[in-house]
Structure formats: structure tokens, C-alpha cells
């Protein structure tokens, strides 16, 4: 298969079951909301070292938020419910509670819960107020600019992490162009995030390492500088590779993001040096979800 002269490899992306949640940060203006979201989603690129994968899903207009203020929807993904239960209150406490004018709400429904205000309320030192409104429980914690309003908890749901595709090109310039276009196309889509900086990573990894302490290490098959020294997946013209990583609330959302991203990359850099798009997998042995590139693009 080819799109704009870019070869689409007959392979599949292998993704994994994850647990996910959505929270909504609101503030007096979009500036504060963005600031809080940026802090909360910082150091959230990969579960390998960050605990969870977390990023902004989209910005919300005042009419879309519970308290009619500008807001930001954030999606967080963990390998287990416990990782979300550990990371979410920690990040909310250090990054949202501390940010002027903000409030924090659940953004998804479900039975299993991840604590927010249930943990953060103790900052109120006894002056906090609990309030049940419309069947939901909120905590109102007095702070120096007034009051921090925080929902008791948010839900967590089953999700998919690790959807991906590799952009292979003649130079980093053309691959970066394709990558930017792909991520820009994915960003407006609902229910997905691209958690890495800029939506992509240059350090695509394989499972395991020659060093026992490491759970992941370099994917040498796609390192141009090792071409000839290892069993490389790159031909002589391929000098740069970037991997776009996608987490989504459903397999359908991940597949749609892959489809939109691949098309955008081909449109932006096809016939300009983007040579091939392939995907990372482990032979289908590790992840339950396999996204065949040709099927996704069909």
C-alpha cells in the first residue's frame, strides 16, 4: 500500500490494556487552566518511568464545564488502577490545588473510582466543606485566593495504550514535518492523547535489555546509526525515524487516530522524503490489541 508515494508497511501496531481516567481543570481564565494542565501533565510521557501517561485531551469552552468557566480536559493512562490512584491525587495536589483560581472535576463516568478531593481535602485542616450537589460530592478547601473546589473522585475505565506508527524518512527535517502534521491532526480527536513531548518519541523502545535492571531499551532495528551493525529495519535512504504513540479510551479511538495521523503525515511529507510508515509490535505476543496498518487505513 502506498499513500502519496509513502509505503505503508504490511504490519501492525501492538497495544496494551490500560486503565484510564479523565479530569477537567477549570479556572478563571484559560491561561490559568492551561498553566495548571501543563503542570499536571508534566513528566507524564511513559509508564516506564513516569508512573502514568497523561496529556491534555482538549480545551473546553465555559459552556462545556461544570462551573461555566474555561477549562481543559486531561486524559491519564496507567498500567493499573493502583497507578492512577497513586499518581492522580499527587499531581492534582501539587499542580492544580496550587494553581490560582482552579477547580478540578471528574470528566468520565464509571463504577471504579480514583480519588481526587477525597485525598486533597485534608489540606483544609478541618476548614474544608463537603457538599453533595446533584448526586456528586465535592470538597471545598479554603485557599489564599478563595476556595479550591474539587470533586470527590473520578472514574476509571478500561482503555488502550501504546497504539503507534513509525515515520521513516530521508532526513530528520522531513520526518519532523510529517510528525508535526500527524500530531496536529490527531490532537482535535476525542478520547485520545499523544503523551510524548510534541506527540512523538525518538527513543522508541523494545521490551527488555541486556541490563537486567531495565524493562525497556533502545529499539536498535530503527536506529539509523546502527544500520549494518544490527538486523536493521531501515534501508540505505532512511536516516531518521520518529514514533507517534497514541493512548485511547477505546480501540476504535486509537485506530481512528492512527488513520488520521498517517494520512496527515503522508499529505504533509509524501513525495518530499517521507519514505515509509510502519509500526511497532512484539509479534502479537505481549499486547491484546493489534492495529493492522492496512486495515486501519482501509
Amino acid at each position: 500500500m502506498q499513500i502519496r508515494s509513502v509505503t505503508i508497511a504490511p504490519t501492525f501496531a501492538e497495544a496494551f490494556d490500560m486503565k484510564a481516567t479523565r479530569v477537567i481543570v477549570t479556572a478563571a481564565d484559560m491561561g490559568w487552566a492551561r498553566d495548571a494542565a501543563a503542570a499536571m501533565t508534566g513528566f507524564g510521557t511513559s509508564v516506564v518511568g513516569c508512573g502514568i501517561e497523561i496529556a491534555v485531551e482538549r480545551e473546553l469552552a465555559p459552556e462545556e464545564t461544570p462551573d461555566h468557566r474555561p477549562g481543559v480536559a486531561i486524559l491519564a493512562f496507567g498500567v493499573s488502577g493502583q497507578s492512577l490512584e497513586k499518581q492522580l491525587p499527587l499531581r492534582a495536589g501539587q499542580c492544580v490545588l496550587t494553581c490560582p483560581t482552579t477547580a478540578l472535576f471528574a470528566g468520565i463516568d464509571g463504577e471504579k473510582r480514583v480519588p481526587l478531593g477525597r485525598t486533597l481535602r485534608y489540606f483544609g485542616d478541618g476548614y474544608q466543606i463537603s457538599k453533595s450537589i446533584g448526586g456528586r460530592r465535592y470538597w471545598r478547601v479554603p485557599v489564599m485566593d478563595g476556595e479550591f473546589l474539587c470533586e470527590e473522585d473520578t472514574a476509571r475505565v478500561d482503555a488502550v495504550g501504546g497504539g503507534n506508527f513509525f515515520l521513516i524518512g530521508e532526513s530528520i527535517e522531513v520526518v519532523a514535518l510529517a510528525c508535526r502534521a500527524a500530531v496536529a491532526a490527531i490532537r482535535p480527536l476525542p478520547d485520545v492523547i499523544t503523551p510524548f513531548a510534541g506527540g512523538a518519541t525518538r527513543s522508541g523502545s523494545k521490551v527488555g535489555s541486556k541490563y537486567p535492571a531495565l524493562v525497556a531499551s533502545v529499539n536498535e532495528a530503527y536506529c539509523p546509526t546502527l544500520r549494518g551493525a544490527v538486523d536493521s529495519g531501515l534501508d540505505a535512504r532512511s536516516n531518521a525515524v520518529l514514533e507517534v504513540v497514541i493512548d485511547g479510551l477505546t480501540p476504535g479511538a486509537v485506530a481512528e487516530a492512527m488513520r488520521v495521523g498517517i494520512h496527515a503525515a503522508c499529505e504533509a511529507a509524501g513525495e518530499r522524503g517521507l519514505l515509509e510508515i510502519t509500526a511497532g509490535n512484539y509479534g502479537g505476543k505481549l499486547g491484546r490489541h493489534c492495529f493492522d496498518l492496512h486495515e486501519v487505513l482501509a
Binding site: 462551573d67 468557566r69 457538599k131 471545598r140 473546589l149
Partner: peptide, 17 residues
Amino acid sequence: TAAPSGFLQLLLDDLAR
């Protein structure tokens, strides 16, 4: 003192329903 507005918006929404 000035009443917190965020909580009030939620409460007013609920009351209006």
C-alpha cells in the same frame, strides 16, 4: 466576604433543575 463563585455555579445549576 465574597462568596466562592465556582461552587455557586454548580449549586445554582442544581437548584434550577
